[in-house]
Nucleic acid binder design. Structure first.
Length: 338
RNA sequence: GCCGAGGUAGCUCAGUUGGCAGAGCACAGCCCUGAAAAGGCUGGUGUCGACAGUUCGAUUCUGUCCCUCGGCA
């Protein structure tokens, strides 16, 4: 399906999101075929090469049938972040638009999706050397030391963050260190207010119990496919357990077992539990995201049926977009990002 | 049937020398602007097995009963 130039001007974008194990990837492949487009993954973990089973990447056959972009971008010991993601994703979307295609973004990383459709403040990425020195100081002077430092340079942000939330406190200190300005002020200026795309957000929703059953089943399937062996290979290549990528679900728990910290059964129990907790956090995030069109799906509902319901929604979206003369009348009102 | 141990939160259990019950796990709610599958916060009313007695007051003491698990028959 090609879309017309007048439509392309509006930069239409379809995003398929939802918690882990809800079946996004399966639906996405069929949706992409129907729309004659590609799958742009919005998953902070599928960017790592060699992490296939744990990150539940689509199979090679699936990737053969429909091009998947924005996966396998870096090695597990390389850093990646929301800013890079946005940069690359915008380029892919642009490429598809130029070819008259409707871009389809699929994923469960809430921040990446938000960053893509509403932007990020224009700041520096991580300074790992500085972060490590802050962590070292925190170890030496106590848990509240970082928070006290942040109170000195950015009291507004410090007031908003819990004293134990070291990751976000460190980002605030880092920004002040690099730019000399409080992060809270830069955030306020950005405000997530602008969207450069006309976006349809489709959320796949499943009732909690059946989603949890799906998670358990998927973990069992991942183990069967060789999650443990994959973890061993990654460790053997020298990827340390402390790496962000190795802290991903699956590798973290398997590495704990391999290090003799707990039994295999305990690793499996933890993996299932942690995956449930993760799914829950995803749902909390998405609940707050505005303008998501939720598709409730039944436990035994076929992928075909879900896809056809999603396609109906996409058709309606394109129709609304087409008939709307002023851009503001599009379903997801946009302000063109100057 | 007899002897022993036990019945307290969804689960495993602690505890109350008698004064409106508490941990771990599970579960739920939430925060989030370049680490985001990361990181962080919050949440415990539960006929303390049932009934009766003693007591100002019983989940705690006493009695009877019911149930579970061992052992002996």
């Amino acid at each position: 399906m090609r879309i017309t130039d007048s439509l392309i001007e509006r930069k239409p974008l379809v995003v398929l999101l939802g918690p882990t194990a809800v079946g996004k990837s399966r639906v996405a492949i069929m949706l992409a075929k129907a729309l004659e487009t590609e799958v742009l993954t919005a998953d902070s973990r599928q960017v790592y090469r060699g992490m296939d089973i744990g990150m539940d990447k689509p199979s090679l056959e699936e990737r053969d049938s429909v091009p998947h972009r924005l996966i396998d971008l870096v090695e597990p010991d390389q850093s990646f972040n929301a800013g890079e993601y946005r940069h690359l994703a915008v380029a892919e979307i642009d490429r598809l638009h130029r070819g008259g295609r409707l871009p389809l973004v699929v994923g469960g990383t809430g921040l990446y999706i938000r960053a893509l459709i509403r932007g990020l403040w224009d700041g520096p990425s991580a300074d790992w050397g500085y972060r490590r020195s802050l962590e070292e100081n925190a170890r030496q002077y106590g848990r509240d030391w970082l928070h006290q430092r942040l109170t000195e340079v950015d009291p507004a942000l410090a007031g908003r963050l819990h004293p134990h939330d070291a990751v976000k406190i460190i980002r605030g200190l880092e920004t002040h260190h690099l730019l000399g300005r409080p992060l809270s002020e830069l955030h306020r200026q950005h405000g997530f207010g602008k969207s450069e795309f006309t976006t349809l957000l489709i959320g796949l929703a499943q009732d909690r119990d059946s989603l949890y059953r799906a998670i358990d089943a998927r973990v069992d399937a991942q183990l069967k496919k060789g999650l443990l062996a994959e973890t061993q290979q990654l460790l053997a290549k020298g990827y340390d357990r402390q790496l962000g990528s190795m802290k991903g679900l699956g590798y973290r728990q398997m590495a704990g077992y391999l290090a003799g910290e707990h039994s295999y059964d305990e690793a499996v129990r933890r993996l299932k539990r942690d995956t449930r907790h993760f799914a829950k956090r995803q749902m909390t995030w998405f609940r707050k995201e505005p303008d998501i069109h939720w598709l409730p799906i039944a436990e035994n509902e076929s992928t075909d049926r879900v896809v056809s319901r999603a396609l109906d929604r996409v058709d309606r979206f394109l129709g609304e977009c087409r008939s709307a003369t002023p851009i503001a009348a599009c379903p997801n009102p946009v302000m063109i990002n100057g």
